[in-house]
């Protein structure tokens, strides 16, 4: 067993956990968190692809994962803004109809 196999399996497992929960969880907020977990799983696969026993990792996948993290936080922020806006829309709707 090497760190590669341990964390590779962790990455795939995290991806599966995130994917499954992103499909079935009943609240949008939680689906967003699940997508973040799945994305970390994909990140693990890339970090594993970069890792070399004895050091000297490949910098390209590292750059890709950093880009992936930034892209995902951007999308997450928009999704959460939508969750807040929907909450506001529902609140005002129920206020209008007694």
């Amino acid at each position: 067993m090497t760190p590669e196999t341990i964390y590779g399996a962790t990455g795939i497992a995290l991806f599966a956990i995130g994917l499954y929960h992103a499909l079935v969880l009943p609240s949008a907020l939680r689906r967003i968190v699940a997508l973040n977990v799945a994305s970390v799983g994909a990140g693990f696969v890339m970090v594993i692809a970069a890792w070399r026993p004895g050091g000297g990792a490949d910098p390209v996948p590292h750059a890709l994962v950093i880009t992936g993290i930034v892209v995902l936080v951007a999308a997450t922020a928009v999704a959460l803004a939508l969750v807040r806006a929907l909450h506001d829309a529902d609140t005002t709707e129920t206020d209008d109809t007694p």
């Binding site: 992103a22 949008a28 994305s39 994909a42 696969v45 890339m46 692809a49 890709l64 992936g68 999308a75």
Partner: peptide
């Protein structure tokens, strides 16, 4: 919101595929 979540899920799947290809 549903559009974005579908797109994010698609993006994460693509990212995993890219990781496997690079590996």
């Amino acid at each position: 919101l549903n559009y974005l979540l579908a797109g994010m899920l698609g993006g994460v799947l693509i990212l995993l595929g890219i990781g496997l290809l690079f590996h």
